[in-house]
Design a protein around this nucleic acid. Structure first.
Length: 931
RNA sequence: GCUGAAGUGGUGGAACUGGUAGACACGCAGGACUUAAAAUCCUGUUCGCCCUAAAGCGAGUGCGGGUUCGAUUCCCGCCUUCAGUACCA
């Protein structure tokens, strides 16, 4: 029979599902290997052809590891809380749970037809109460913990309480809010319960605080920094504004340094690590206090160049700074107020786009340089951000370009402080070279010598200290939405308390509408009678999208039986699986999911629940598959209206045309199917065409894959036409895994032909299965072992695309050799199995093996001897230019080879009687003769 | 502006630690089979020159230099594209 991919693929997908071929045990003699994909949000649109790219790569890897004798955990699930299902619910009234279940069914069907080796028994859904019970449980652990800087880890809050009871607040070094109080043990013990709770809240790793948040009015919720892109929401692209609100936060800043250091221990792509480093934004410097003249106020600034303090000629505070009003003198009041109004009017976007215009206003007040007592004017300007550091900077025009521009604009002095600074009247010079001048106690010193002197002096004066500043903020944790995990908290006397652990999960209540209440409360405020113990109000916001995805890889470790146990993941399973060996997903999660997951993992480790400091040992970013849009060109008449005539791409410049997107599914190799085009839209039914060479050629452009651009390619269609094995191979063949590339169906025929050729190796001309038991020849063995080595090497370095090419070469060679020998084909089947699991299972069975046993077969061993040759074609170059190949017997000694080569008549011809100066030999191969 | 990645035929892309650039595939051209088409198979396909042909010569991996017997690969300078980030003091 010819290669019947539909029958074969259906047969094996059914077989694997029925026999649970890929069910994994948590106990095994084999070494463990954990291959994880970033689980998808099940959107209503289903999968397009770009989504499975990473899943195919991870599946090839997982299957390969299995053939190599590993016990492989390769699970899949759904990140099923999220905005789209809720937006749909608002529009239609359909419960998001129903939408989600429907979408998951579509995803599951689409995934199943691609032949993945997931252990579906371990599936997770973040919106499932069985699952979010444990998300809530982790939240409770965070609430019940504080960060002990002494031990550099999270500790139970009880430890802090007992310390307060015996020693008061002395001797505690914690990451906390800034407004913690100092008290003795007696004072603590005398405090009322609410007062104590209020104080403890400043230490908890998840805490309630009034802070400036990103408020998105259109979505009716706050967003985390990583969910805001250039002033607009990542989902939906709605405008985002700053607003002060009481919000749940996660004290991720406590882990800033560990998150930074951990990056050096993991095998992740460098760009991604760099993004996390920038996001954390550690800068080492000092904080300096400037006394305001004739006032008790102190302006604190952060600087990375405290050595330039003698060059300070003014201070700048952000327009939002709390001192602005109190520092403004009567004369300057109007100017300052005008400026603040102007700044407020500028949107976030304008402020970012317009970084060249220098603007600011003088408060009329002066501060004093703590080191030389000099009077320094205090200005406000919008180039200083309220949200970073202290919202105030000391300006050193000679060393900082922005300060320099500001000084020039407003005629403020530029003070040279290093003798190596050049042209400071023309531009700032941030050098650290040379010796200090005009710099009081550090005159004549170099940078490295000056720093300790300054820090010591500032500390003596109580005017400053060395400080490390992070850009990263604590993560806002509440969302004013319905479709998320309820926060397991109720309020008593205005203070938050956890519900009892035995009451988990706190189920998401039913509501009549998925909109905020009339009073402006989140949708959960609509839940009638939803009260803790019938009397206390629950927290009404839900958890953000990243909550459920910040620990899910541990839930996969629990086998279906163990899911009944009362833990988020059983101890023995965590001890066995430890961490994720290979994680594949998109780089868009760099500063969101991947950072939060590392944070929660470290926290869980601090409390002893898990073992590893880092959750994902190795990470690969698969590139995005972009859409490849096709265009037709409609000719416009004199008035610019579209006619019904379309001109082929090559001739379009001769006419006035408008480009229109055309469905890529009616275009093949840029040739438009005219009949299908006429039925594409009713108005094209009578379309006429101007052809070139008898064809209508379409234009091409690479864009994001989306419905509106008619460039979405559905994997269902590809599987229907070519089968899953072809799609898997083709997605890998398309280019390097980590590179973004446009989807292009043009080459898929070649991959399909390859599989047919492969099938024919096992069959005679009448398509009867026929292999022989004859001894393989050297050439056949060489061909086979070349591919064994290639696949081994390529899989380890994720170069799947070149492996597919090598398969084609191998099958072409074997076809030329008319090889149908069992000894060769049997091993070849196993080598190809990770890539094309269906066709190989079928052939494996035809070869007489037990049904379905291929998945756990033994990957063949590479034998280098088969690649060794008797004769070797030496590439000979003369003066660096390749001239010829000389075939020489390998039994010759290297010195004899040189002789044979030099005596060869063709070489002699090139040498033209001259004697070689030098013969360069590399690895026993003569490479170059220098004359 | 800063950070990172990348520029190779008509196209997607190979070339692993510096050693025959363009593997493999698509497309295109020609041929075989066929009444014909589809399918399949075979041949050619970086560019230029020369040539009946066999063969040969020259140039060539964004641009300009450098190191080297030898550079797509290493170094310096520049240009372009993509991604991330953006007044972070």
């Amino acid at each position: 029979m010819d290669y019947q991919f539909r029958d074969i693929e259906n047969k094996w997908q059914q077989f694997w599902a029925e026999k649970q071929t890929y069910k994994v045990d948590n106990t095994s003699e084999k070494p463990k290997y954990y291959v994880l994909d970033m689980f998808p949000y099940p959107s209503g649109a289903g999968l397009h052809v770009g989504h499975p790219l990473g899943y195919i790569a991870s599946d090839i890897f997982a299957r390969f590891k299995r053939l190599r004798g590993f016990n492989v955990l390769h699970p899949m699930g759904y990140d099923s809380f999220g905005l789209p299902a809720e937006q749909y619910a608002i529009q239609t009234g359909q419960h998001p749970a129903i939408t989600t279940v429907d979408n998951i069914a579509t995803y599951r069907r689409q995934l199943d037809q691609l032949g993945f080796s997931f252990d579906w028994g371990r599936e997770v859904r973040t919106s499932d109460p069985e699952y979010y019970k444990w998300t809530q449980w982790i939240f409770m652990q965070l609430f019940n913990s504080w960060y002990d800087m002494e031990a550099d880890k999270a500790q139970p809050i009880d430890l802090l309480v007992s310390h307060f009871q015996t020693n008061g607040s002395t001797g505690i070094s914690a990451v906390s809010d800034e407004d913690t109080q100092s008290f003795t043990a007696e004072e603590w013990n005398a405090m009322s319960e609410p007062d104590q709770q209020e104080e403890l809240l400043k230490y908890r790793l998840t805490f309630l605080k009034e802070s400036t948040v990103n408020w998105c009015a259109a979505l009716g919720t706050v967003l985390a920094n990583d969910e805001v892109k250039e002033g607009f929401s990542e989902r939906g692209g709605h405008p985002v504004e700053q607003k002060k609100m009481w919000q749940w936060s996660m004290r991720i800043t406590a882990y800033a340094d560990r998150l930074l250091k951990g990056l050096d221990t993991i095998d992740w792509p460098e760009p991604l690590k760099e993004m996390q480093r920038n996001w954390i934004g550690k800068s080492i410097g000092a904080s300096v206090k400037f006394q305001v003249e004739n006032s008790d106020k102190i302006i604190e600034v952060f600087t990375t160049r405290v050595d330039t303090i003698y060059g300070v000629s003014f201070l700048v505070i952000a327009p939002e700074h709390e001192f602005v009003t109190s520092l403004t003198t009567a004369e300057q009041k109007n100017e300052i107020e005008d400026y603040i109004i102007k700044t407020k009017k500028k949107s976030e976007l304008d402020r970012m786009a317009d970084t060249k215009t220098v603007s600011g206003a003088f408060t009329g007040t002066y501060a004093l340089n703590p080191l030389n007592g000099e009077k320094i004017p205090v200005w406000i300007a919008d180039y200083v951000l309220a949200g970073y550091g202290t919202g105030a900077v000391m300006a050193v025009p000679s060393g900082d370009q922005r300060d320099w521009l500001f000084a020039k604009q407003f005629n403020l002095p530029v003070i040279q402080i290093l003798d190596a600074q050049k042209d400071i009247e023309e531009t700032a010079d941030a050098t650290k070279e040379g010796k200090y001048i005009n710099s009081g106690i550090i005159n004549g010193l170099a940078y490295d010598e000056a720093l300790p002197v300054l820090i010591q002096k500032l500390e003596e004066l109580g005017a400053g200290k060395a400080k490390v500043q992070y850009r990263m903020r604590d993560a806002i944790f509440g969302r004013q939405r319905y479709w998320g995990e309820p926060v397991p908290v109720y309020f008593k006397d205005g203070l938050p308390y956890l519900i009892d652990e035995s009451e988990l999960p706190l189920l998401l209540p039913e509501v009549d509408k998925y909109l905020p209440t009339e009073a402006g409360d989140p949708p959960l405020g609509r839940a009638l009678g939803w009260k803790y113990k019938g009397e206390y109000a629950y927290e009404l916001s839900t958890m953000p999208g990243w909550a459920g995805s910040s620990w899910y890889w541990y839930r996969y470790m629990a086998s279906p039986d163990e899911r009944k146990e009362d833990v988020f993941a059983p101890k023995q399973a965590i001890d066995y699986w430890k961490d994720v060996d290979l994680y594949i997903g998109g780089s868009e999660h760099a500063t969101g999911h991947l950072l939060y997951s590392r944070f929660w993992n470290k926290f869980l480790k601090d409390l002893g629940h898990v073992n590893e400091e880092e959750p994902f040992k190795k990470l690969i970013n698969q590139g995005m598959i972009q859409g490849r849009s096709n265009f037709v060109y409609r000719i416009s008449d004199e008035e610019g209206r579209g006619t019904n005539t379309f001109v082929s791409h090559g001739l379009k410049d001769e006419y006035k045309t408008t480009a229109l997107h055309v469905d890529v599914n009616i275009v093949e190799n840029e040739v438009l199917d005219l009949e299908k085009f006429k039925s594409f839209r009713p108005e094209f039914a009578n379309a006429e065409f101007i052809l070139e060479s008898g064809k209508y050629l379409c234009g091409v452009e690479v864009e994001k894959m989306s419905k509106s651009k008619f460039n979405v390619v559905n994997p269902d269609d590809i599987v229907e036409r070519y089968g899953a094995d072809t799609l898997r191979l083709y997605e890998m063949f398309l280019g390097p895994l980590e590179q973004s590339k446009p989807w292009n169906t043009n080459g898929i025929e070649g991959v399909f032909k390859f599989l047919r050729k492969f099938w024919k190796l096992f069959h005679d001309d009448q398509f009867n299965f026929r292999v022989t038991d004859a001894e393989p020849t050297k050439a056949e063995l060489k061909s086979l072992h070349k591919i064994i080595r290639k696949v081994e090497e390529d899989i380890e370095r994720f170069s799947f695309n070149t492996s597919v090419s090598s398969f084609m070469i191998c099958v072409n060679e074997l076809t030329d050799l008319k090889c149908n020998k069992r000894a060769i084909l049997e091993e070849l089947v196993v080598v190809l199995a990770p890539y094309a699991p269906h066709i190989t299972e079928e052939l494996w069975q035809l070869l007489g093996h037990a049904e379905g046993s291929l998945s756990y077969a033994q990957f063949p061993t590479f034998v280098p001897e088969y690649l060794v040759e008797d004769e070797f074609a030496y590439p000979i170059s003369i003066n660096g230019k390749m001239r010829m190949n000389l075939t020489v017997s390998l039994s010759l000694e290297p010195a004899d080879v040189e002789k044979v080569v030099l005596e060869n008549p063709d070489v002699q011809k090139y040498l033209d009687g001259k004697t070689p100066k030098k013969v360069i030999v590399v690895k026993g191969r003569i490479v170059n003769i220098v004359v």
